[in-house]
Amino acid sequence: MNKQKLFRASKYGFLIFISFCSLFPLFWMFVAATNTSVDVLGGTLIPGFNLIENFKVLTANTNFYQAMWNSFKYAAVTTLASLLVSSLAGYGFEIYHDRGKDMLMKVLLLSLMVPFAVIMVPLYMLFGNLGLLNTTAGFALPTVSTAFLIFLFRQSSRNFPHEVIEASRLDGLTEIGIFFRMFIPIMRSTYAAAAVITFMNAWNNYLWPLIIMQKESAKTMPLLISNLTAGYTIDYGVLMLAVGISILPTLILFLALQKNFAEGVTGSAK
């Protein structure tokens, strides 16, 4: 009995320790964002009064608003385009499946094995030739269609009742009409999951915009924060504020739609 109690206590102790390790860096970041660089380096753990000052320095020294807007614009366009194209394909692969399409799906899944570093140089050259450097289309195109999302939508199309398709056909809906009028509304939770993942990936993307966004006016938040660390003396208060602001949208999205997010990442694995 005593042994069991000890086991239980150590289990909670372990969970509390791990949770603390998980949360502490984020807590520290928000504390640092409200303090002066001197206090941050002094090891303070109490929120300070320097938040507004830090924000003034951040907006005065960087293209903050532009970078926020760019990040938002790129991520929103990527998400919308990618949900449309990938769900259309996933639905097509499942509902109209035949040997040819099953084969094609298998081939497309191989793209998951392609490391981005391998294709980034040819992609950069291709996008340079197409005049897509520094553009939203340039940002979005490589991730508009991903085998991961297509697969996710193919799996979830299995739960889409065939009776709905038959009934809609009898009612005179076209095939594309069934997709837009029936499939999308019924599958909105899958769409929510896919949207969270795609938006977060696009918002956080670093390497691709680092390569193609060469103009100052085209840069994104990850590029902006990365640049803040380039100087010789780093203002940690300002830096952590910038990091905090860039994390906030995805953090809120994540906490609000945690269940959808978990469904999305694991959904295709089932």
Binding site: I18, S19, S22, L23, P25, L26, M200, W203, N204, Y206, P222, I225, S226, V243, S246, I247, T250, L251, L253, F254, L255, Q258, F261, A262
Partner: peptide
Amino acid sequence: IFVPCATSLVS
């Protein structure tokens, strides 16, 4: 334990 996933790699 899941929350670190909400942060970008750069951040």
